[in-house]
């Protein structure tokens, strides 16, 4: 299993990529409310996810998500090829 498929590792990855402290976020965090979230950082975040696990998240995918857990569930589904 890839590291990013564990929610703990995904949260650490998110904190690293969005340049926030890991204790500032949790799975229920609304990602749009993260202080460093911007259109550019969203793009960087999505490109880094793609580099790590070869999963693409579209703008409409992102629009359907609210929390970091929502994104993580999407990643798991895509990675497992069930979506």
């Amino acid at each position: 299993m890839h590291d990013l498929l564990s929610i703990e590792k995904f949260l650490q990855f998110t904190a690293d990529e969005l340049l926030v402290d890991a204790n500032e976020i949790n799975k229920n965090t609304t990602f749009r409310s993260i202080r460093t979230w911007s259109s550019l950082n969203a793009l960087v975040f999505i490109s880094r996810i793609n580099e790590e696990i070869d999963v693409l998240i579209s703008a409409s995918d992102l629009a359907s998500c609210q929390t970091l857990e929502d994104i993580h569930l999407l990643l798991k589904t895509r990675f497992n090829g069930t979506d």
Partner: peptide, 12 residues
């Protein structure tokens, strides 16, 4: 521009 979609189409 929709930067995320441009990225997705390009990389895909």
């Amino acid at each position: 521009l929709n930067g995320i979609d441009i990225y997705n189409y390009s990389v895909k």
